[in-house]
Design a protein around this nucleic acid. Structure first.
Length: 294
DNA sequence: GTCCAGGATGGGC
DNA sequence: GCCCATCATGGA
């Protein structure tokens, strides 16, 4: 067991509610009090769960884990749940914003749950392009089932997403049975190969300024503006990342303003008020779409 | 049957 | 630069 102390304001319950309200994620299980997932830490598979303990969080290691693995998992959870972020400036900004005021006060302490693994994030974004999320989750699950790993524990089956080395040798036709289209299969495989060749990595990207980072991502076939900003938001933790073209964001804004989907320029104009916090603003607006209430 | 999903690309103009 | 067809599948 290991305790974590997130920066206040923090609410694990809000995180759980958010996850429970989304289409089921294949890589972890969520209950009303905890989230449990398996990871492969440098060849060692480990299972852990995160739950609230008073004002703090605790990580429970469900499989025997070395000291090194435990500290890696701690770092993973900190990054995954954005525990070190100080949200105070965002809430100050949100308080004066017509669109953010309500969601921010209603979901005080909600963190932007990320996707620390770059290949997982890109894969998820690519299969999620222009299809509903339930369908996209099914494809992600099939990728994990067919090419990833797993850990069984007390009758439960925990999937581990494959690394790029598992996808790089494939041909798009081999992904068709998973209902991944020829074109998306090409995108996935090319991204996997670029990562394997070292031309695309989190380490390289994180050294770049946001503009250069986006350019670098856009250079890859299959990564457009939406995918680039989505990954910057979920994986690279760029707070100014802003997936303007996201249909969910547009719907959330439209609903909040009591009208239809806004134009691209309207979204950009609203985003100016969120400068530096576009990623969290987007996330809290997404939250309004999936109204899971206890 | 039609429309919409947390888009990207390449062509024509 | 913008507009448009195409890809491609499932659920409402």
């Amino acid at each position: 067991m290991l305790a974590l102390s997130p920066k206040a304001p923090f609410s694990f319950q809000e995180i759980l509610n958010f996850l429970l309200g989304m289409p089921a994620e294949p890589l972890f299980t969520v209950t009303k009090t905890s989230v449990t997932r398996a990871l492969n830490i440098e060849g060692e598979k480990a299972l852990f769960s995160v739950s609230a303990h008073k004002d703090n969080l605790e990580i429970i290691f469900l499989t025997p884990s070395s000291q090194l693995t435990q500290s890696r998992i701690q770092a993973f959870v900190t990054e995954w749940l954005d525990l070190d972020r100080d949200l105070t400036p965002f809430y100050q900004l949100a308080q004066q914003d017509p669109l953010l005021k309500e969601p921010a006060s209603q979901h005080q302490g909600l963190r932007l749950v990320g996707i620390p693994d770059l290949f997982e994030a890109l894969s998820w974004a690519i299969v999620g392009q222009q299809v509903n999320m339930t369908f996209a989750q099914a494809q992600k699950r099939r990728l994990a089932e067919n090419f990833g790993d797993y850990l069984d524990y007390q009758g439960q089956h925990f999937l581990i997403f494959p690394g790029p080395e598992k996808i790089a040798p494939l041909e798009p036709q081999e992904l068709l049975p998973l209902q991944i289209s020829q074109r998306k299969g090409e995108y996935l495989i090319r991204v996997a190969r670029a990562m394997q060749a070292g031309n695309l990595s989190k380490e390289r990207l994180r050294k770049l300024a946001p503009e250069a980072m986006e350019r670098e991502l856009l250079a890859h076939r299959g990564i457009g503006p939406w995918t680039a900003n989505y990954v910057m938001m979920k994986t690279l933790r760029v707070q100014s990342a802003f997936p303007v073209d996201d249909v969910g964001l547009q719907n959330a804004i439209g609903a909040a303003l009591g009208k239809g989907k806004p134009q691209r320029e309207e979204v950009l104009a609203l985003g100016q008020a969120w400068s530096g916090w576009e990623a969290y603003a987007t996330y809290y607006l997404w939250r309004t779409l999936y109204g899971f209430q206890k």
